[in-house]
């Protein structure tokens, strides 16, 4: 048996080189958005006990809602739940335009999703974990946030809204 060299047609070799370059370009564009513009995916924030997260008085999710931590900067603690009904607590938030809101979302029961329309906030909500992302609301209007993961019979009615006032 002799060792054989791999035969690659010149057109095909050029196509493979081009494909590799193209993928490198896409990866670069993604990296610029992630590390240059701060468009990032969620990172591990905190572990919680889903059995007590909604009731323990020390848990921010026992009193979910908006907290202003600095002028124009808010923390929003949101509970996504399927029991007894499919809903977010709170269901409605209001902030002035120009606000930067950091969302902390968790679930006391099954998996949920959390997607704020027309923003980059779109993530999974898992019992036992806290999902965190920040959105800056520059334009006034109503932004629905909807559940994007199957969470039982009422998945399709689970939503809330953020009102951004001018």
């Amino acid at each position: 048996m002799s060792a054989h060299k791999m035969h690659v047609d010149s057109y095909e070799r050029n196509w493979m080189i081009f494909s590799a370059v193209l993928l490198v370009v896409f990866a670069t564009a993604v990296s610029v958005a992630a590390f240059g513009m701060g468009i990032q995916v969620p990172a591990p924030e905190q572990r919680v006990d889903p059995r007590t997260v909604a009731t323990d008085p020390n848990s921010p999710w026992s009193n979910p809602g908006l907290r202003e931590i600095a002028p124009g900067k808010y923390d929003a603690y949101i509970l996504a739940r399927a029991v007894p009904l499919w809903e977010y607590l709170p269901k409605e938030l209001t902030v002035p335009a120009g606000s930067s809101v950091t969302f902390y979302v968790t679930s006391p029961d099954v998996q949920h999703g959390f997607k704020i329309q027309d923003t980059n906030a779109n993530f999974m909500v898992l019992p036992g974990q806290v999902s965190k992302l920040t959105v800056k609301f520059d334009k006034a209007g109503t932004y629905n946030f909807i559940c994007t993961e199957f969470c039982g019979a009422g998945h399709g009615i689970m939503y809330g809204a953020i009102t951004v006032t001018p």
């Binding site: 564009a29 990032q40 923003t119 920040t134």
Partner: peptide, 16 residues
């Protein structure tokens, strides 16, 4: 198509 979706992402701004 890819660039169109990428521009939607960039237009919506940072998440940190």
């Amino acid at each position: 198509i890819w660039a169109t979706i990428y521009m939607i992402l960039v237009g919506r701004g940072g998440t940190l």
